[in-house]
Design a protein around this nucleic acid. Sequence first.
DNA 1: TTTAGTGCTACATTAATAGTAGCAAAGCTA
DNA 2: TAGCTTTGCTACTATTAATGTAGCACTAAA
Lengths: 113, 113
Amino acid sequence: MKFPTPGKPVRGSKSGNHIMALFDLLGRSWAMGVLWKLREGPSTFRALQERCESISPTTLNKRLKELTAALLIERTVEGYILTAKGNEIFLLLLPLEKWSREWATNFKETDEK
Amino acid sequence: MKFPTPGKPVRGSKSGNHIMALFDLLGRSWAMGVLWKLREGPSTFRALQERCESISPTTLNKRLKELTAALLIERTVEGYILTAKGNEIFLLLLPLEKWSREWATNFKETDEK
DNA sequence: TTTAGTGCTACATTAATAGTAGCAAAGCTA
DNA sequence: TAGCTTTGCTACTATTAATGTAGCACTAAA
């Protein structure tokens, strides 16, 4: 498994700056979404697929492997769960929810093409 | 210009849940990176390209338009800058930096293939 | 020994990103 | 006013990532 590793070249930093490595990891389709959906508790592969409403098994599998390699999630008998680190980062993402709620109000009527 | 709009179907939410719309927006290559690099101050297109170390003009242009439509950045005579909203979200991303520094320590020697 | 559920993998298609060239417009400079 | 630069892109091609649909191998219960 290969994922954006701090210390190795990543998007935005040839030297592998840690924040850029993180952005590279989280800046992939579904990465943050999967973490978010896992906040609800352990989930099997198929259940997670449903929580996500629409995600191909190919992509889900890839993200799960990357996030596992990145130590953010792990697989248990109950299914996939957030690790301690995964939970930490979830808590850091949490404020985005409130912010996005306000942000969303800007696009209610503003229906540009 | 088309970008993940709250209220419209986005990745992870057919109803356009705001946090999922935000994840869809930020979960694209370079989106968070560009916001991050713009914290340093106004930047022209070409200068921004250099700050990013490696980014194709195609992608940069696309992200700039999306982020502009999303009200996070704008173009001024001095170049691209973060808007008030853009700065807010940057501040929310800021804690990730410290976290990622600690996270990175897990991958110093752990050099798996 | 069937049946059902789970965790994927295969494969084909479409979309996103990269990488390189270079053009049109604006601002010097001589 | 004719060149020379810089800037902000766009065009184009190549490569990589994501989608969507099928279905296989495994486990467990009936």
